[in-house]
Write a protein that binds this DNA or RNA. Structure first.
Lengths: 163, 163
DNA sequence: CGCTAATAGTTGTAGCGTCAAGTGTTTGCT
DNA sequence: AGCAAACACTTGACGCTACAACTATTAGCG
C-alpha cells in the first residue's frame, strides 16, 4: 500500500489546465445564455434536446439521460420551464407511470432564438482558438475520457457508423 | 446579420464530447472525495492551494484567485472549513482590511490524507485512458482554450520558461 | 490634511441541485 | 388471480453559490 501512484510533471500540467477549463467553461456559457436569453445552460440544453426529439417530445427518464441529470433535478427544472410556458407535461398513454415533456411553440421559439448566440459563444470560446487538427485531437481525447466517465454512452452517441 | 456562424460536423462532435466531460467530471471527482474524505472538490482544492503556499497562508483575495472563486463564495467556504478546524482566519498585519487564511495542522493532515485517493482517481479517470501523446495534446489544447477563458493566467501559470 | 474612491472582506437572501421519502403503476413470480 | 418488487416520477428539506448590500480600511488627490 506504500506505493502510491502519482502524476508525472507533464500529466500534472495537462490535468491542471483541464480542471481550469472545467471550472471556467460553465460560467462562460452560463453568463452569455443568461444575459441574452434568460436561460441557464442546463435549461438551454434541456430545450435543445426536446427540440431535436420526434414530436419535440421525450419521456422524463429519457430526457434525464440525454441531459445527464437525475430525475429529481429534471423534474424541478421542467416545473420551472412549465411555469414559463416553454414546456408542458402530459401523462404518457402507453405507460401511466410515465410523463412526457413536450416543447411548446414558445419553447421552440426560445431555443431557436437562443441557439445562434450560444453557438457563436462556443465558437469564440473553444473552437476558434483551435486548429482543425486540434479539434480532431480534442474529439479523440474526450472520447477516451468518456469511455471511463460514461461507458454506456448515455450522453454522447458511440462512434457514428454509416448505416 | 443574416450570416450566422455555425459549427461544422467535426467541431460539433468534439464540442459535444467536451461538454459531456465538463458535466460529468466534477461529479466523478466530487463523489470520490466526499466518500473518502468528506470534502467537496472545491474544499479540497482550497486546502491544497493553502498547503502549497508559503507558511500555508494566503490572503483571501489571493486564495480566491487561485481557486477561481468569488470572494463571497470563498468567505462562506472558509467559514465552514474554520468550523471544522481545518483553516483559521487571522487579520493581516500589513493591511488591516485584509484577512489571512491559514491551514491548521488538522487541515494539513486532511489534505495529505486526501491527496493520494484523489490523485488515484484522477489517474484512473483521465490520465490512464490517454497515451503520452494524448496528454501532450490535451495540455496544448486546454492551454489554447484557457487563453480565451483566463487570459490573465490567474488559474494556471503561464507557459513555464527556463529562467 | 481632508474628502472621495477604491479595495478587502462579510453577511443575508434567493435560486438551484441533491438526497430521502412518498405516490401511483406495472411487472414478474407463484 | 394475487402479491411483492421494480419502475417512473414528484415533493420537501437542506446545503452551496451568486448577487446585492453593507462595514472597515487604505489610497489618491487637490
Amino acid at each position: 500500500m506504500t506505493d502510491v501512484r502519482w502524476l508525472s510533471e507533464d500529466q500534472l500540467r495537462a490535468w491542471k489546465k483541464l480542471i481550469a477549463v472545467v471550472e471556467l467553461l460553465p460560467g462562460a456559457l452560463e453568463s452569455q445564455l443568461q444575459r441574452d436569453s434568460s436561460l441557464s445552460h442546463f435549461e438551454y440544453f434541456t430545450l435543445a434536446m426536446l427540440s431535436e426529439a420526434p414530436d419535440r417530445t421525450l419521456r422524463m427518464t429519457s430526457l434525464a439521460a440525454h441531459t445527464n441529470a437525475t430525475l429529481a433535478r429534471l423534474s424541478h427544472v421542467v416545473t420551472r420551464l412549465e411555469k414559463r410556458g416553454l414546456v408542458r407535461r402530459e401523462p404518457c398513454a402507453e405507460d401511466r407511470r410515465a410523463t412526457n415533456a413536450i416543447l411548446t411553440p414558445a419553447g421552440w421559439s426560445t431555443v431557436v432564438a437562443a441557439a445562434p448566440g450560444h453557438a457563436g459563444n462556443v465558437l469564440a470560446t473553444v473552437i476558434d482558438p483551435l486548429t482543425d487538427a486540434d479539434v480532431a485531437d480534442l474529439d479523440r481525447i474526450m472520447g477516451r475520457i468518456l469511455e471511463v466517465l460514461d461507458p454506456a454512452h448515455v450522453m454522447v452517441d458511440a462512434v457514428p457508423t454509416d448505416d
